[in-house]
Amino acid sequence: MTDSSRLQGRDAFLTALTQKLGRPTAAAPTAFYLPQQRQREVFQEYSLEQLKQHFVDYSRQNLGAKVIETTFDTLPQVIEQDALERFDEDSISLLIGTDARFPNSGAFAALDSRIQVKEWQPEEIREQQIACAEQAQIGVVFAECALVESGTIMLKSSKAQGRSISLLPTHSIFVIQQSDLLPRITQACERLHEQATQGHRLPSCVNFISGPSSTADIELIKVVGVHGPISATYVILTDQ
């Protein structure tokens, strides 16, 4: 039984609906099969190298994202370089998640003195951390996986990596392990389906992010940078 204080109006609503469907009670549906499985055929024959190439090309050409290939050891330097290229202020605020897949925080402490590195602090006060993200120019997050077809980064919200990091700063840096490249949203959805089937609650926020935010609401002309980040860099770790 469900907690009725958080559930309103269901019985009357569903009784009426079931009646409209012409049956006495709601019954479990018979198994559902798609007439085709076209979604599984996309990029089926691509090698990992071809997948990566498509991901890189699409993200650059169609999304305007900068894409860098590097290795785990040089990640801090690559982030430093991207930050300095993007901003010429004397003080650049960079907010980074504390995902365990990142190099330890010591590696980022040695960056150029113009870059102020701040870590996401889940134990701190909510408003303060949101304000910190609001003031940061750069947000750095670790991707769960990436989708080749659409140049998409998949993120799961977690204690270590709040939603604000990839949302409030003007520039996003996404770090992706090459082994996490998936052909398309099909494979990511399969993972989520598996998790749901096993009865696990999903993370409160799963985001599929394709490049910086954009709009075409004025004369259908694409403008990059609306409410979310204005620019994005994808860093692929080729040795991971």
Binding site: W120, P122, E124, R126, Q129, I130, L147, E149, S150, T152, S157, S158, K159, G162, R163, S164, R184, I185, L192, R201, L202, P203, S204, C205, V206, N207, F208, I209, S210, G211, P212, S213, S214, A216, G228
Partner: peptide
Amino acid sequence: AVGLPLTGYVTVLTGPKEADQLDG
């Protein structure tokens, strides 16, 4: 709708935020 394989954001939200998360 817009001629893209995916739009800029496909956001999947499940319930309120977890107790140990800050934003949401």
